[in-house]
Design a binder for these strands. Sequence first.
RNA 1: GGCCCGUUGGUCAAACGGUUAAGACACGGCCCUUUCACGGCUGAGAUGGGAGUUCGAUUCUCCCACGGGUCACCA
Length: 478
Amino acid sequence: MVRTRFAPSPTGYMHIGNLRTALYEFLIAKHNDGKFILRIEDTDKGRYVEGSVDVIYNTLRIAGLNHDEGPDIGGNYGPYIQSERKSNYMEYAKQLINQKKAYYCFCTKERLESLSKNISDEEVVTYDRHCLNLSAEEIENNLKNNVPFIIRQFIPEGETTFNDLVFGEITVNNSELDDQVLIKSDGLPTYNFANVVDDHLMEISHVIRGSEYLSSTPKYNLLYGAFGWDVPIYMHLPLLLNENGHKLSKRLGDASFEDLLSEGFLPDAIINYIALLGWSPSDNREFFTLDELIAAFDGGGISKSPSIFDKQKLVWMNGEYIKKLSPEKFYEMALPYLKVIKDEGISLKKLSEMVKTRVNFVKEIPDLISFINTLPEYQTDLYIHKKMKTTPENSLASLRALLGLIKNIDGFSEENLHAQISALISEMGVKNAIVLWPLRTALSGQPTSPCGGIELLSLLGKEESIKRLEKGIQLLEI
RNA sequence: GGCCCGUUGGUCAAACGGUUAAGACACGGCCCUUUCACGGCUGAGAUGGGAGUUCGAUUCUCCCACGGGUCACCA
């Protein structure tokens, strides 16, 4: 049974790197018909941020990464919040002490600091094992007198080798490893210890996490070995970097999932995009629904080198997702923005269709259509278009002819307008653009618009169209 | 600094000893189009450097350079 877990700390912020880790954990579980577990790692009381567990729930829900077990929905391996499992860890730590795989340490903070003081910056500071050989009496005495203590892992001599699904076999000399703290003086376990104990107890089969944990993995292995437990399958993921090549972080102002959502990115687009950061499917496809990802994600094709999070490409992908939306769904999302239009005679449905291929975000809509409310101030050089071969002079002539025609048209349907204007154009003996570009310009007052001149006529109606044409003529006559 | 990991165009990346070194984003051009956009076509742009191994290296080995990670009673 494949069981993976997402184990965030409730620090109030879920950046894209965390999300991608959760995604891959979810995908590996689901690809293998396994379980995806959520566990909250709140052993650092100092960093706890109120409400951040809800951020985690919301993120997973919105992203569609539904967990099978967790604090909110329970499961057979609970509790799923580490602070609620406190007694477990001490018990296991004492077990290691009995086996001489761990030991009490009564060193004060001051002594530990003095340790690093005598050493130059070039060297590694490791614990000097001052407390390793305390006599049984000393230990007992200290404990009896409530001297604050921590429990340290005893790292034996030798080498440690582990295998990683992404990075392959890695061997490290144990002399590089410190006698790390397992239980802190507040009685809570460190992340490293809690992780090993919980992953074992929760029968996690695949430990999937960022590659920043690669160098502490040997210590995990030693712990598994000390307990006599099977080592899980490791899968370390390449880091996600910002455009400056640094690890994504809140401090550097990198966007969180929530930030991206409020910027208007679609959850599916974000998921699709980050799935491709550090992973490449065998067929090089680039559009995936979550279900398609589950089918395709078999653990292969994961890169070892870090990737830079490129927002520009996400913007593009968001636009693609918007184009894929059904007209109904797009209309629903666009509606709040379409409502900037004051004229109730205008079909928002129709506007919605026009605007759909022109935006990467629905929030861009008002900028595209607000000219409909009021004609913007514009300069007559808008009428000069090299490719259309328009000049202020021929534009003026066209607008005059159009004004004359339109005043006498009653049916303002597109078909009718189209027919009449075509007739006018052939009568004038000019190119389409000579008439249509000035029309579009006079009606929109902008270099671009979501549709052409004839549609604009129909959209604005006779009265408003005449006003705008007259305004154009007036400008050109000066 | 020690240790670990990495290095294909600006970015994401494919090619797992033999290819004219894919594709995508961004950028340029052309076409389509009554503007813009969409769409289509197209252009420019890369194997960090040096030794080996091999008939042949992006691919294997070593050295160097560069980048990242880690070295907490943080996770």
